[in-house]
Amino acid sequence: MSRITASTAPSTASSSRGGVSATAGRLTRNSAFERFARAGFIMTGIVHLLVGYIAIRLAFGGEGNSADQSGAMAELAEKPGGGVVLWVGAVAFAALGLWRLIESVVGSSSKPRPDSTKSLVFHRGKAFGEAVLYFVFTVSAISFARGSGKSSGEQNSGLTARMMQSTSGTIALVLIALAIIAIGGYYLYKGATQRFVKDLEGSVGSVTRKLGTVGYIAKGTAIAGIGVLVIVATTRSEPDKASGLDGALKTLGAQPYGVFLLVVAGLGIITYGVYNFVRARHAKM
């Protein structure tokens, strides 16, 4: 009896995995689910448009919300009908997050399977990281739609301050900062080499190439700047400097020719936002 049980266990596990894959496959073939997931790119574009706008406004001495995703959602919540848009956006972000989560488990049905284990792990890990990001956007959108949203910069500073109170926390901060810089470098690489074209369906025109190149380089520079500020904040024991994208942009604006640099950064982030509208229609899902 024990031999029979042992021999059937692998097939049961295999059947279970096959069932999960089949269910995930059916879900990603659902047209309504795909439309909601693509709408997540539209919301991502809107958020980046607002972040870029806030950055340019700061360059000319304007005040208001922080130049990051929480500031963008706060800006949106203040507009007529903004709460409704945020609720719709929360659903779209959640759908895109779930789509990426499925990709991290079973892979993408529209992209070729990676030809090496290292490449497979990288693509699955990237999909999982994007899923986490979109779920964070989901929670943030719900919070601001309900009127209880908080500045992500303040939350980052508070978390950094708590982690700095121990050696292990300080080491973790440095490792996190290096990971953020690596992500920024990947965006820069993807923009400079135009590898983002592989993520799109059909032929890609010159306008799309330019939008993607400028957008990814601007996004990568901003992300790398966040990582650098985390390291600066850690080494100087100044947690207030680790305030995310808003802190990175304000630090840029404080440099010589800061107004010019901040405007360029804002326009770059806006370009990345526009590129996400292209992704909403042409991204391989």
Rank of each mutant, 00 (worst) to 15 (best):
A92P: 01
A72I: 02
Q69H: 12
G25Q: 13
L96W: 08
A127C: 10
D115I: 12
S15Y: 13
F277V: 00
L267A: 15
S243V: 03
T208M: 03
F41I: 01
I180H: 02
A131R: 02
I171R: 09
G185V: 10
S104D: 11
V230L: 09
L175Q: 05
S15L: 13
V88K: 01
L262V: 13
F277D: 01
G83D: 04
A161Y: 07
F122D: 12
R3K: 14
L27W: 14
A141E: 01
Y257V: 11
G89P: 00
I46D: 00
V207W: 10
L173G: 00
V174W: 07
G153L: 03
I42C: 07
A9S: 11
S104T: 09
A192T: 08
T138A: 04
S166L: 06
R57D: 15
G220Y: 05
A233I: 00
S7H: 12
L229Y: 03
V105Y: 08
I46V: 15
R281E: 10
L262Y: 09
T170A: 15
S237R: 12
A92E: 03
K150S: 12
K79C: 01
H123Y: 09
T221F: 15
A242M: 05
R3T: 15
I181L: 09
R38W: 03
A248S: 10
A161F: 02
S104F: 11
G81K: 07
Y53R: 09
G266S: 09
I270S: 06
L229A: 08
T138C: 10
I102R: 02
A95P: 04
G169P: 05
M43G: 01
R209H: 04
A131F: 06
V228F: 11
G129Y: 05
V139C: 06
M163N: 03
G19D: 12
R100L: 10
G273F: 03
N30C: 12
L262E: 10
L267K: 10
V106W: 03
V139N: 08
I181N: 04
T5Y: 14
G169M: 05
G253C: 11
G266L: 05
A177M: 01
G125R: 11
G215P: 00
K241S: 13
V84S: 13
A59E: 05
L249W: 01
T213I: 06
A242F: 04
G149Y: 00
T193W: 04
V274R: 01
L175R: 08
T12F: 14
H123P: 03
V20R: 07
E154C: 05
H123G: 07
L200I: 10
A192E: 06
Q155W: 09
T271S: 11
I171Y: 13
V47E: 09
P256Q: 13
A218C: 07
V47L: 13
E130D: 14
L200K: 02
I226L: 08
H48R: 07
T170W: 06
G153V: 02
V85M: 09
E103V: 06
T5M: 14
G205S: 08
T251E: 13
